[in-house]
C-alpha cells in the first residue's frame, strides 16, 4: 500500500534570497556539501521564530496539522544547526508547497483576481480599473463557529425554552436560563424521571 500523499504546505512569500554561504572556512576551503533547506522548512522557521507565532497558529497559516508543523520545524532547526556547525552552505529550495497567491474580489465588476507580483501592491481592479475591491477569503466560513454549530436544538422539558445545541456539550448538562431545569435534545424521546 502506498503511503498517504503529502498535504501541500502553504507558503505566503518566497524567501528574498536563495541561500547562505559560509565564509572563513579554514579547514577545507568551504568545499563541503550544501544543506538543502526546503521552502516549507524555511516558512516554518519564519512563522515560528521570526513572526513569533506558536505552533498551532503557524500550522493554520501553512494549512497543515499542528504535529506536522512541529515536525517540519524541528527538521528545519536540525538542518540550520547542521549547516552552522559543519560550516556548510544552505540552499533554500524544493519541498511540497504552494504559494498563497492572494485573491481579491472586485465589487464593481464582481470578478476575482490574484496578485502574481508579491512585492507590488495592487491599487486597482485589473479588469474595470475601479479601486472598490477587497481581500477575498474563501476559507472565511471555516472558523470555530462552524465547528461548534449543528442543526439540533436543546429544549427545556418544563417551560419549553429553546436554544441552539452546542457541539460537545450534552443537552442534559445545560441549565435552562428561564426556570433552572436541565434541558433535553429537541425531538429525542423524553426521559421520564421516576
Amino acid at each position: 500500500m502506498s503511503p498517504r500523499p503529502f498535504r501541500l504546505r502553504k507558503i505566503s512569500n518566497p524567501p528574498v534570497i536563495s541561500g547562505f554561504k559560509p565564509y572563513g572556512n579554514k579547514k577545507n576551503g568551504g568545499k563541503t556539501e550544501s544543506v538543502f533547506l526546503h521552502l516549507e522548512e524555511y516558512e516554518a522557521l519564519r512563522l515560528c521564530d521570526y513572526e513569533m507565532l506558536n505552533h498551532h497558529q503557524a500550522a493554520i497559516f501553512m494549512a497543515v496539522s499542528r504535529p506536522t508543523l512541529t515536525r517540519i520545524y524541528s527538521k528545519a532547526r536540525q538542518k540550520v544547526a547542521e549547516a552552522l556547525v559543519q560550516g556548510r552552505q544552505i540552499i533554500i529550495e524544493g519541498g511540497k508547497i504552494y504559494f498563497d497567491s492572494e485573491w481579491y474580489s472586485c465589487k464593481s465588476c464582481s470578478c476575482y483576481f490574484n496578485n502574481p507580483e508579491k512585492q507590488e501592491e495592487i491599487k486597482e481592479c485589473p479588469l474595470c480599473r475601479s479601486s472598490n475591491f477587497m481581500n477575498y477569503e474563501p476559507d472565511h466560513e471555516e472558523t470555530e463557529d462552524t465547528l461548534t454549530r449543528c442543526m439540533d436544538i436543546c429544549i427545556c422539558p418544563s417551560c419549553g425554552f429553546e436554544t441552539p445545541h452546542r457541539f460537545g456539550c450534552p443537552c442534559k448538562d445545560e441549565i435552562c436560563p428561564e426556570c433552572g431545569n436541565n434541558m433535553v435534545r429537541k425531538g429525542a424521546p423524553l426521559i421520564r424521571n421516576l
Binding site: 504552494y98 504559494f99 464582481s110 470578478c111 490574484n114 502574481p116 485589473p126 479588469l127
Partner: peptide, 17 residues
Amino acid sequence: IKSLLDSLKIQMIVLKQ
C-alpha cells in the same frame, strides 16, 4: 494551473459571468 500560472507570474482574473 494555479501553481503553474503563479510561477509564470501571470495574473488570473476569474469572471463568473
